[in-house]
């Protein structure tokens, strides 16, 4: 049997904010490619900080982060970041149409070589993520919270990432929107085999999909029993 691919790993990671609060101390953990991982913990326990560290939006005070066994510093930051696309808790869109938002990443130098999807491909994705009532020419800022979150997911998917790092994707949504976003996330994982690393303070209904679950306690990650 082949060794599992630990595509993303931290060794002896230490991170604290300047105000003096230490969030992680000697954190060592690795995440297996292709899995669905949930990081749970109370508000302020460091779930978002962990995802921000993994996507290099914060730099650790000590320790290393490895991507496919190599230090992340070996990769140009834009190339690394689009491979493990971090999706923020609050969906952030630019003023413009749905199309403008979906094609935004293709204006960045790193993505210029990637094939730019045409309107048909974009429309198909909107349908797949149950946004059939949304047109590409609609103003993105007029969408509902759940639609915005799904639009951000689709935008990240267009970059063909190895993994998606999702920061509390459903915490601010009503029940109906929550369900549609949960389904969208599961679709991404099941149909495309994309690794999902999801930070959430509440349980995530994976509808039978195997899940690896960790709890953040005492500045460390503890694997939950039975997962």
């Amino acid at each position: 049997m082949s060794e599992p691919d630990h595509f993303l790993a931290c060794t002896n990671l230490r991170f604290g904010y300047k105000q003096g609060r230490v969030v992680f101390d000697r954190l060592t953990i690795s995440f297996e490619a292709g899995s669905f991982i949930q990081i749970r913990g109370a508000s302020g326990s460091g779930k978002s900080t962990l995802l921000r560290l993994l996507s290099r939006l914060e730099e650790p005070d000590a320790g290393a982060i490895l991507f496919h066994g190599r230090p992340v510093a070996d990769y140009p930051p834009p190339v690394f970041r689009k491979s493990i696309c971090y999706v923020q808790q609050t969906p952030t869109l630019i003023a413009g149409t749905v199309r403008d938002n979906l094609l935004l990443p293709f204006g960045f130098r790193t993505n210029r070589e990637s094939p730019k999807p045409d309107d048909d491909a974009l429309q198909k994705l909107l349908l797949e993520f149950r946004m059939d009532d949304v047109a590409l020419s609609d103003h993105a800022l007029s969408l509902s919270g759940g639609q915005r979150q799904r639009l951000c997911l689709i935008r990240a998917l267009l970059l063909n990432p190895d993994a998606l790092l999702l920061d509390e994707p459903v915490s601010a949504l009503d029940d109906e929107s929550k369900q549609s976003v949960q389904e969208a996330i599961l679709t991404v994982h099941r149909t495309r085999g994309i690794t999902v690393l999801l930070a959430s303070h509440q349980p995530f209904d994976t509808q039978g999909t195997p899940i690896v679950s960790y709890n953040i306690t005492e500045r460390a990650l503890v694997r939950r029993n039975g997962s």
Binding site: P78, Q88, P105, F108, R109, T110, N111
Partner: peptide, 16 residues
């Protein structure tokens, strides 16, 4: 900040 970081996560460099 959120907008800047959104672009960074989508492959933008700091200039973009």
């Amino acid at each position: 900040r959120a907008e800047v970081e959104m672009m960074l996560t989508l492959g933008a460099d700091y200039r973009e």
